[in-house]
Nucleic acid binder design. Structure first.
Length: 770
RNA sequence: GGGCGAUUAACUCAGUUGGUAGAGUGCAACCCUUACAAGGUUGAAGUCGCAAGUUCGAGCCUUGCAUCGCCCACCA
């Protein structure tokens, strides 16, 4: 921003910056605004320096000529661009022949200080020349031999530019070559470029190529696709360039950070990122921490211009300790922002003091973050944390959440413009719906393609919860707080059991970072069990007149389950749950202070799978009757007669106890038990468990339709039966499968067989009627 | 070139030690039933990318292939 203002407003902004106390390095056209060096950052820097882990060194770093700053490896983005491969002949001294090199960057040739070939390369085995002429200059450069050169690439002869390429830098070090910098910090050519000096690097490329063509030294140029690094801030092509920068020697730090994960002290979740973490840590390069940007922690290094002493201390020096000079100059570079970020786990808690906060919250339980800063930030917090906190890790779990991508699966980025604005989604669908959607999408190890349909679905869910609560609030009062277990009906026991099961499932989902499991358990429970089933079964009792028998208990259960739902849902839908919770008559204060509705002892008492099965039978029966209604086109408002027949004493009791529920949800006129002998002639049948229901269709029965329906049902059942039978007939299955699996299959088989018999009987009966 | 992930209903996605596939949306039929039509009831819909292997049994494990995506490296 400051850079842009400066370009627009010229001197005004410079004066403004000076008034604000910025210091200016006129030679480098650069201001430094010291944002104040915190004690922690300073202490860390000084300690690392004294331990020999921070040094100033020369290396090829990626430089942005526009921002005029060094960029760390990870700040460079690569992009494929159309370019050319230039084949340039470097002649021998007699001007004839020579070596042809290939390059995509001809302008760097002025910095060439050698041409390298592989000593094993047969093409160069008879080469007697020791030097080549560097075209467009009057310099002779040596031919060196090094195994590094890949004989399969380019022409086999490699131009070596030690000041502008990291590999060439290494070659230069090895062979004692001069490192000739030819492109300055603003991207313009320097003195070695001769008549091209002062030109922009792109312009120089163009002109140099023209000049080479004139000299007949450009053998060919071939169009290629070539990935070019550019600055993540301004997208200018970066210039790999030799530079003096400050580095952290990370190998010893990385080793410990790596070990912490390897030994399991820190867990990365999902596990697949662990490998990525190791790949990074094991191949880590020294970390360039100096930046030439406007704002930041100014590096606490002073240099004495007289005796060249370097002073790094925790307090600002005024005199050179070596020669007494008062002309000390502080380094103008500032620290990479991730340097101070790396200290976050302890510097934010009062370190270097051993505060209570630090003692309590170091290490933290979990760090939640995206994989894109696993290295920028997480790895560095690990390194610094372990180093400065006596080998104690900064956090136990690192949860790497999914990244929301655009509809094509691309990472959203401001510069690409494919960003989904969360505020817009919130405006349209609501914050709760959006948040719940993200939780529901948060399956581990998978990124998220945003789907508005899904958000819309969950908006309906928020609405459903709101309406269910409205209904409940019509009935419950502040007195409905105690539940007498003796008075509970089956549906009430059932919903309490399901609520307990859900509380456990949600708790486990959250604890294992399986937020989608938690979200879908809630969705399923609230909508399909609480709303669709429990509220419907409760209605008759709720509408009983004052003093009715069931009224008090059902209200208390309704209030209790709704309250538990709200608390469970709160992390996923904070706003609407808080709102409803505040309206509930028996609650006080914020829902955030409510305790989570799971307690092991209470769970053991409340959860009852037998109850769940029994209620499952009742709902199954209702469902089967409704199916007949629907299939036989009976008006939903029309009340019908149903007779039930069963030999199963258990089912008989359940049906008797829940008769009113069945009558209500099935929209029945009457519901009685009956002998198989006294069945009315025109009725449709369904089989639930061991019970057959006869749905009276006097006058409206369509025999064809009923036969059809039963045949289809029979077919489905038979198919399932055959599958199970096949397994039971398989001797190796009986031989090798575990007992519990065999038992399960046998039970299943018995059930299916029974059902089949009943269906066949019903079918025969209806066929006779016809 | 190396690594990671994906491929399941028309669409977007779940599926946790291998036991015979689920949700939301959409679709079809019926219904304005006194919390909710942003709803209810019922229903149709899948050779789980392809091929082989291990196993009594594979969406899940092994190998190969195909397509898509991401990350890293290289790019003379």
């Amino acid at each position: 921003e400051v850079w842009r203002w400066r370009e627009k407003s010229g001197g005004a902004i410079i004066n403004q910056l000076k008034r604000l106390g910025a210091s200016c390095d006129w030679d480098r056209e650069r201001f430094t605004m010291d944002e104040g060096l915190s004690d922690a950052v300073r202490k860390v820097f000084v300690r690392l320096y004294k331990e020999g882990l921070i040094y100033e060194g020369q290396y090829i770093i990626n430089w942005c000529p526009r921002c005029r700053t060094a960029l760390a490896d990870l700040e460079v983005e690569y992009e494929d661009k159309d370019s050319y491969m230039y084949y340039i002949r470097y002649p021998f001294k007699d001007q004839k022949k020579g070596l042809t090199v290939a390059t995509t960057r001809p302008e760097t040739m002025f910095g060439d200080t050698a041409v390298a070939v592989n000593p094993e390369d047969p093409r160069f085995s008879d080469l007697t020349e020791t030097h080549v002429m560097l075209p467009l200059t009057d310099r002779m450069i040596p031919i060196i031999r090094d195994e590094y050169v890949d004989t399969k690439m380019g022409t086999g002869a490699l131009k070596v530019t030690p000041a502008h390429d990291p590999n060439d830098f290494n070659l230069g070090e090895k062979h004692g070559l001069e490192k000739l910098k030819v492109i300055d910090d603003g991207g313009c050519m320097m003195a070695p470029a001769g008549k091209f000096e002062g030109l922009d690097r792109a312009e120089c490329r163009k002109r140099a190529v023209e000049a080479l063509v004139e000299l007949g030294l450009l053998e060919k140029k071939v169009p290629i696709q070539h990935s070019v690094g550019n600055c993540y801030r301004c997208h200018t092509d970066v210039e790999p360039s030799i530079s003096k920068q400050w580095f952290v020697k990370v190998a010893p730090l990385a080793e410990k950070a790596s070990e912490a994960v390897r030994s399991g002290r820190t867990k990365i979740i999902p596990d697949m990122w662990t490998k990525t973490y190791f790949d990074w840590m094991d191949n880590i390069r020294d970390w360039c921490i100096s930046r030439q940007i406007w704002w930041g922690h100014r590096i606490p290094v002073w240099k004495c211009p007289d005796c060249k002493a370097v002073i790094v201390e925790e307090t600002d020096p005024t005199l050179c300790p070596t020669c007494g000079s008062t002309q000390l100059a502080q380094e103008t570079d500032v620290l990479d922002t991730w340097f101070s970020s790396a200290l976050w786990p302890f510097s934010t808690m009062g370190w270097p003091e051993n505060t209570d906060l630090l003692k309590t919250f170091y290490p933290t339980n979990v760090l939640v973050t995206g994989f894109d800063i696993l290295f920028f930030w997480v790895a560095r917090m690990m390194m610094m944390g372990i180093h400065f906190m006596d080998d104690e890790i900064p956090f136990e779990d690192v949860y790497i959440h999914a990244l929301v991508r655009d509809e094509h699966g691309k990472k959203m980025s401001k510069s690409k413009g494919n960003v989904i604005d969360p505020l817009k989604v919130i405006d349209e669908y609501g914050a709760d719906a959006f948040r719940f959607t993200l939780a529901a999408f948060a399956a581990q190890g998978r990124d998220v393609k945003m789907s508005e349909d899904r958000v819309e679905g969950y908006r309906h869910f928020v609405n459903k919860l709101w309406n269910a609560s409205r209904f409940a609030l019509m009935h419950i009062t502040e007195k409905d707080t105690t539940i007498d277990p003796e008075k509970l009906s089956l549906p009430e026991k059932w919903i309490l059991s399901r609520s307990a099961a859900t509380a456990l499932a949600v708790k486990q989902g959250i604890e294992t970072y399986r937020f989608n499991d938690a979200a879908s358990a809630l969705y399923q429970f609230v909508w399909h069990e609480f709303c669709d089933r429990f509220i419907e079964t409760a209605k008759p009792a709720l509408y009983e007149k004052e003093g009715g028998q069931r009224r008090d208990t059902v209200r208390a259960v309704l209030a209790k389950v709704l309250e538990d739902i709200l608390v469970m849902m709160h992390p996923f839908m904070p706003f609407v749950t808080e709102e409803i919770y505040n309206i509930l008559p028996a609650t006080k204060g914020s829902i955030m202070k409510a305790s989570y509705p799971y307690d092991e002892a209470v769970y053991e008492q409340t959860r009852n799978e037998t109850i769940e099965q029994q209620m499952g039978f009742v709902f199954g029966l209702i469902s089967d009757v409704r199916n007949i209604r629907s299939e036989m086109n009976i008006q939903p408002s029309m009340k019908i007669k149903v007779l039930a027949n069963t030999e199963d004493e258990q089912e008989k009791i359940i049906i008797a106890e829940n008769k009113s529920v069945i009558v209500n949800l099935g929209t029945l006129e009457s519901f009685y038990f009956s002998d198989a002998g006294s069945i009315p002639s025109s009725c449709a049948t369904c089989v639930t468990g061991n019970t057959t229901c006869f749905v009276s269709l006097e006058g409206v029965i369509d025999f064809e339709k009923e036969i059809n329906r039963l045949e289809k049902e029979l077919e489905k059942n038979t198919k399932e039966l055959l599958g199970v039978q096949k397994r039971l007939n398989n001797e190796s299955f009986l031989d090798k499968a575990p007992e519990d699996v065999i038992d399960k299959v046998k039970t299943q088989h018995a059930g299916l067989e029974e059902k089949n018999e009943k269906l066949v009987a019903n079918l025969e009966r209806i066929k006779k009627m016809k």
